[in-house]
């Protein structure tokens, strides 16, 4: 299972890098959100996928089938942060598009203002 997950994560990273390297700003934003999802999935996999019982102390749950709660808690935090950053980035991209009249990164090179 871990192997399959690792391959899937690798593919996600690949797609994310491809999108981030494209010229259109909106594709870049999709790429960054894909990148953070891949990172979160990686965290989940690295924490170990064993354990099917919820991480709550109750009857019939032994240490062996108890899911590790820490990666879940940390990923939840990371997801919230990624959500906030992505939405900020979207607003920024929208404003930048209005202000600069383009979403093409080729034209957003900042070389004319300073040497």
């Amino acid at each position: 299972m871990e192997i399959i997950m690792s391959v899937a994560i690798g593919l996600m990273f690949m797609a994310a890098v491809y999108l981030i390297l494209s010229k259109s700003l909106i594709r870049i934003i999709i790429g960054t959100s894909l990148l953070s999802h891949a990172a979160h999935l990686l965290f989940l996999t690295m924490g170990g996928l064993g354990g099917i019982a919820p991480p709550v102390v109750s009857d019939g749950v032994t240490v062996n089938d108890y899911a590790d709660p820490l990666p879940q808690a940390l990923i939840l935090t990371a997801i919230v942060i990624a959500f906030a950053v992505t939405s900020f980035f979207l607003v920024l991209a929208y404003r930048a598009y209005q202000e600069l009249g383009t979403d093409n990164m080729e034209q957003l090179r900042g070389t004319e203002d300073y040497e």
Partner: peptide, 10 residues
């Protein structure tokens, strides 16, 4: 608050 602020801004 935060989600509505973002949605309203866009």
């Amino acid at each position: 608050g935060v989600t509505m602020t973002i949605i309203q801004t866009i």
